[in-house]
Design a protein around this nucleic acid. Structure first.
Length: 201
DNA sequence: CAAACGATTTTCT
DNA sequence: GAAAATCGTTTGG
């Protein structure tokens, strides 16, 4: 089943980040379907989190989407090269978001290989937020799209991730956030080879 | 209006 | 392991 607004609108962003593990992220652009199981996420707790773009309730044109109601996509450009895909959670004016960092490819693998300029399936195809977005065809122009719409959505296909297989760790690439960089807001599936290596382990 | 910077990835040494 | 690539957003003049 497709996750609905009520899934994203809840208030515990950390809990939702854990629940997203094992769900399936699906994109369909120009009639081309690609999908993969989410194996790695990071929570960003808005106003109280220095690592978030919305720290201190700072509002800018770019981050306005995070302030909207849960269930939308927030895509932004990092380092001028990479498109990072986030899921907006919580309710209007509470800027929580979850970064999807890695997936295990399921459908449309040949398309993903083509988009990434690769020839054979290997973990680095979708391990890491920038690489995953490119494989799924996600672009900053998709920022603000509803996750219930035709382009992007997340499905529950009944995959159960055992609690003992969920690992909590510190987030990647947020050293500038000082003490908040130490929060255990990164979650991934233990022993899954499609989890990105990161730098924070 | 100009300048600095980043929730990363790839490539070269 | 270190450094470059590259551009929209944000911040300062």
């Amino acid at each position: 089943m497709i996750l609905t607004e009520s899934f994203y609108a809840r208030k515990d962003v950390v809990k939702i980040a854990k629940e997203l593990l094992g769900k399936v992220l699906v994109t369909r652009f120009d009639g081309i379907l690609t999908s993969g199981m989410i194996v790695e996420t990071e929570a960003y707790a808005g106003a109280t989190d220095k690592a978030s773009h919305a720290y201190g309730n700072r509002r800018t044109n770019r981050t306005e989407i995070i302030y909207g109601h849960g269930g939308a996509a927030y895509v932004y450009l990092c380092y001028g090269i990479h498109h990072l895909f986030n899921v907006v959670t919580n309710i209007q004016d509470t800027p929580h978001a979850i970064l999807i960092r890695a997936i295990e490819p399921m459908e449309g693998i040949n398309v993903m290989l083509q988009r990434r300029g690769k020839e054979k399936l290997q973990p680095l195809l979708t391990a890491g937020p920038g690489a995953m977005s490119m494989a799924l065809g996600i672009h900053t122009k998709h920022s603000g799209l509803s996750l219930q719409g035709p382009g992007i959505h997340i499905e529950d296909r009944g995959i159960k991730i055992s609690k003992k297989d969920i690992v909590a760790a510190t987030r990647v690439g947020v050293a500038y956030a000082m003490d908040d960089a130490l929060r255990p807001y990164r979650f991934y599936i233990k022993d899954n080879k499609y989890v990105s290596k990161g730098k924070g382990l």
